[in-house]
Design a protein around this nucleic acid. Structure first.
Lengths: 202, 202
DNA sequence: TACAATACCAAGCAAGCGCTTGGTTTGTGA
DNA sequence: TCACAAACCAAGCGCTTGCTTGGTATTGTA
């Protein structure tokens, strides 16, 4: 199942919002602005004028500014979890599964959902405790997909370090690509995936 | 030369401020608060009350709030660059030099200067263009130390991936330790350094 | 002991913030 | 065609923000 079909079915299930709807366009703008300027520095007036409405009208769609931040994070985790689950189903060997995980995460960070993913990494401190707990729950599902594969690799004796440490190193390394990797440059995401597999000796 | 001696000589040269001085205590508090709550969410009133003065009195020591952020970043780069330079001088083989770089960076992130280092990673968007340029200059000096060692390793044919890519992966992976590593747990920083060297096949 | 210089306080200003309110326009199903 | 809900606007409220001001302790030096 290709990525956009997964997105369509999640929209149909009302788990994420249609990017063409008012709410969806708002979240897209919010992700971009939050990424560029940071959540706190972005005012509701910035966001409203970016989508061409008055600042007060935002609150017809969201209860608060924080609610917007939470929605940006929520929807991007949900989408990327399902994309990753589908990719894992296509991979055959455990090694291929790891390659898929790396490729998916790189794509989520540097592709369409990149802005939202950056927000997820850099702005979690601005969430209320309650919202943070909800986001963490979603993240746990995502992380379980990773740990299953890394544990399997370790059982095969092909991992050079502890699977938890490995995952954490990869999380940092892959997140960080957002600060330097430029899609359309001389290195494709597939090239990068290969370099990383090589670095792990796989 | 031990770390605290390096610090002393930098204080003597007025390149960083004495942590016991009013300015130094202010920077320590600022680093902690900026790290915990983020720069934008931390008010000058928060910071002032943390060191026990009135908010207006801050501006006797710093021209602006942004000036405080810049000073936090500046001083931590300067200190850690010199600590790293000294560690490199002690290491003999190229492999030992890499190990030193990793150990130093882990120490800077998870030790005394950890809060300031986290601020450096997460709050650079809040700097003005002018301040950012100054900080980047300092970072270039620091990065040059890394690249020298990684290039040497590549010439020896011991690196499994491009040195630039390797450095960027390590930057992300090491920065990220701040979100999960707990000093005093079952894994020491030396253990962690070893795991990372192993992961690189070195 | 005199006298700057340094460090601080008390008060508050102007601007910008998130969000609310009351009313108007727009789209949609019966 | 009409009623009603959803989407939006214009205005502004109450509060917080970074920073300034004018004055007062405190400290170091001769």
């Amino acid at each position: 199942m290709p990525d956009h079909t997964i997105q369509q079915s999640l929209i149909a299930d009302q788990r994420i919002s249609d990017p063409r709807s008012a709410r969806g366009r708002l979240l897209t703008s919010a992700a971009r602005l939050f990424r560029e300027q940071g959540y706190e520095r972005t005012t509701v007036r910035d966001l409203a004028s970016d989508v061409g409405i008055q600042s007060g009208s935002l609150f017809h769609h969201f209860r608060s500014k924080e609610d917007i931040l939470k929605a940006v994070m929520e929807e991007t985790i949900i989408l990327n979890t399902e994309i990753m689950r589908a990719a894992l189903a296509r991979a055959e060997t455990v090694r291929d599964k790891l390659r898929s995980l790396i490729a998916c995460e790189l794509e989520s960070i540097n592709g369409q959902t990149g802005e939202a993913m950056a927000v997820l990494v850099f702005e979690w401190r601005s969430l209320s405790d309650a919202s943070r707990a909800e986001i963490l729950k979603l993240r746990d599902v995502y992380e379980a997909l990773w740990m299953e594969v890394l544990s399997a690799l370790e059982e095969e004796g092909r991992l050079k370090a502890d699977p938890f440490v490995t995952r954490r190193m990869l999380t940092g390394a892959l997140s960080w690509t957002i600060t330097w990797y430029r899609p359309g440059g001389s290195m494709s995401l597939e090239d990068l995936t290969g370099e990383i597999m090589g670095m792990l000796g796989l």
